[in-house]
Design a protein around this nucleic acid. Sequence first.
DNA 1: CGATATCTTGAGGAATCTCAATACTAGTGG
DNA 2: CCACTAGTATTGAGATTCCTCAAGATATCG
Lengths: 254, 254
Amino acid sequence: MGAKREDAAVSPFDMARAQLIENRCDSDPCSACAVRFLTVCDALDAADLDRLAEIVQTVTIEAGDVLFDEAEPASAMYNVTQGTLKLYKLLPDGRRQITGFLTTGDFLGLSVEDSYAYTAQAVTDATLCRFPRAKLEHLLADFPKLQRRLFALAANELAAAQDQMLLLGRKTAREKICSFLVGLADKAARRGLPSNPVDVPMTRSDIADYLGLTTETVSRTFTQLKASQVIQLIGGNKVRLIDAMNVEALADGE
Amino acid sequence: MGAKREDAAVSPFDMARAQLIENRCDSDPCSACAVRFLTVCDALDAADLDRLAEIVQTVTIEAGDVLFDEAEPASAMYNVTQGTLKLYKLLPDGRRQITGFLTTGDFLGLSVEDSYAYTAQAVTDATLCRFPRAKLEHLLADFPKLQRRLFALAANELAAAQDQMLLLGRKTAREKICSFLVGLADKAARRGLPSNPVDVPMTRSDIADYLGLTTETVSRTFTQLKASQVIQLIGGNKVRLIDAMNVEALADGE
DNA sequence: CGATATCTTGAGGAATCTCAATACTAGTGG
DNA sequence: CCACTAGTATTGAGATTCCTCAAGATATCG
C-alpha cells in the first residue's frame, strides 16, 4: 500500500486538526441528500427536514485528521456523508483499540455524558454533517420520531458492539479476519456499493487494532487465507472473497 | 465455591425455563419501588408512574434459569430489581462470550430488531420487572421523557461496551481481572452497596467468558494478585481490594 | 459425611506477539 | 520518465502469554 494514506502515529495529540466547517448555504441541502435514507435524517419527512437543515453544518476533513478527541467536550453529533473514519480508545501506554469504522450514513458523537468516549479520526478524506448538540437536543424535543430513530440507531450500535465482543474475546485470528471481511462486504452491500471484491481502505495496523491482533498477525493471516484459496488480494486495498459463504462459515468457526 | 450455584452447561437449550410471572396486584407497585431511581422508571414522575405500573409484571427466576434466549422473539424488556444476571452469545462450537453482568437497576431486552441479541441467564436468584414490548412502545409514544431515558441508558451501555472492547482486545490477563474488580466495586458503590470487599457472585468460568480468558487463567491471576498483596480472597465470593487506587492503576496498565 | 461442582495448581503446547530484516507501493522531485 | 523516499506490508526466528489437558483440593448441599 502507498505512502501517506494516513498518519499512523498512536498519539492523536500532534495530529492536524484542520477542519473545514461551513454552514450550509444551499436552500435545501437535506432533502437533496443522496444518503439521507441511510441516516438519522430518514426519520423526518420533507416538511420537517427544513428544521434539520437549519442547524446542520458541513465538515470536510482529510485522511489522518482527528475530528474530535476522547474526553473532549461533546459539542456535536455527526453523520458521515462520504469517506471512512475510525473510532478508537487508548490505554496510557499507547495501546489502541479501534471500536469501529464508519462510512457513508453512519452517525457518531453519540454521548449522554459531557465528553466523547472515543477519538474519531479520518481514514480517508471525508465529509460529514455536523449537528451542534444543543440545537439538536432542542430539535429532539420537537420531533419524537427523530428521538426514536436515534434510539434505534443506538440499539443497533449496541448489538454490533456485542458481536465485536464475541469476536475479540473468543475468535481466532483467522475467524477475526474473516468476520471483518464479511462485515465490510455486508456494509458495502447495504449501501449499494460493490461488495466483492470489497474495498478495504484501512491499513493493516488499523485492522489489527480493530481485531485485537498485531499488524504482523493480520498480514500473515491474509497470506494464509490467500494460500488456502479463500480470498484474493487485489491491488493494495481490495479483497475478493472467492466463496463468500465459505468466508462466512470460517468467520464463525464452522 | 459451592456446588449448584448455577448450571455451567454451555448450551442453554436444556436449561430450566421455569419463570414465575405475575401481574402486579399491588395498587401502586412502582411508586413504592426502592430501586426506581436507578432505573428507566426514574424518568417518570409519580403521576405518570401509574401508567407504567399498569403494564408491568414481576418475574422471579432461580440461579441458572434462562430468562430468554438469543434469537428468540423479543417480547419484552426487563428491569432487574434483585439478583445478578449474565448476558451471553455463543459460537456454533459452544465458545461463549458474556457481554455483561446485570444487577439491581439494570435493564435488558433492548432490541429494535425482532429478536434478542443475546441469552439472558440468572447468576443468582433474581426478580425483574417485565414490560411487554408492545405495551411499552405504546407508552413511549406518550412519554417522550421515558423515550429519552431509554436512549440515555442505551448510550451508556454503548460506552460501557466500548470500554469492554478495549479490555478484550488490548489488555493482559492481570489488567482484565483488575478492571473487572474495579468495575464490580464501582457498580456496587453506585448502588450504595459495600464495594470493598466487593461481592463476586459469578463463577470463575463466567468471569473467564466475560474477560476472554479461561477458567484456569482467571484462577491463576487471582492467585498472583493475592500473592502480590493486591487483593485478598474472602470466603468463596468476596474480594478485598487492598489498595483500590493501585488496582485501578493496574487495570489500565499504568 | 459423601457427592458433585467448582476452584486451584502443574506441566506442556500452541497461538500470537516481539523484534528484525526485507520487499512493496505510491507519491516526489530531478 | 524514472530513480528516490517514506510509509506500509510481508516474512522470518525466537519469545511469551495464555491455553489445554490433567490431577488434586475445596466448598456446599442433601
